[in-house]
């Protein structure tokens, strides 16, 4: 449970202590109750890979995984992540090895300006957790809450399909 640490800050805002695990690392921190998760990541923790593109939960640039679910972190308070786990773009690469989704976006030219890319990739990761072999339509539906202005989505769909293929092949290899 988020614990109220002081009735108000010097700025007149309620502060709470939260415990949250981000990309596997535990954080015990004081946050203002009104702090959005995206600002907590970007401003408090300096994790600027998660971007902000709108204020109305439409564009998906701020998408992260909260307890394994893709959420738009501009519409979630940091205190709602208390006792939870958060995964961001910064956690995709492991031990110097890119995640298949990162490799897919690079190989299939799924990004141009790169601003929507982290959110787009996190949405794709959530999709591929549930659906190992999505159809084109399933991919398009999954990313329909993530706006891209540069690519026209064609290569993003290919990138996600590429990652799905690689992940299936890897899983089969292990099995």
């Amino acid at each position: 449970m988020a614990v109220e640490t002081a009735p108000t800050t010097s700025k007149g805002q309620r502060t709470l202590k939260i415990h949250v695990t981000i990309n596997g690392a535990p954080h015990d921190v004081d946050v203002e109750a009104r702090t959005l998760l995206v600002h907590f990541l970007r401003e408090n923790l300096g994790m600027t890979g998660t971007h902000i593109g709108c204020d109305t939960t439409n564009c998906g640039a701020c998408t992260v995984l909260l307890n394994g679910r893709a959420v738009k972190s501009c519409t979630v308070f940091a205190v709602q992540a208390d006792q939870g786990t958060v995964a961001t773009v910064e956690g995709l690469e492991k031990d110097g090895k890119l995640h298949p989704i990162q490799e897919g976006f690079h190989q299939e030219h799924g990004l141009q300006c790169g601003f929507c890319t982290p959110g787009m990739m996190m949405t794709a990761v959530a999709l591929l957790e549930k659906n190992k072999q999505p159809t084109e339509l399933e991919i398009r539906e999954a990313i329909s809450g993530n706006l891209c202005r540069c690519t026209g989505y064609v290569n993003i769909v290919k990138s996600i399909d590429h990652a799905a293929r690689v992940m299936r092949e890897t899983a089969e290899g292990k099995a």
Partner: peptide, 12 residues
């Protein structure tokens, strides 16, 4: 340029 963008290391 992809190298930094796919890692969330772009600097906007």
């Amino acid at each position: 340029e992809d190298a930094r963008f796919i890692r969330g290391k772009g600097k906007y």
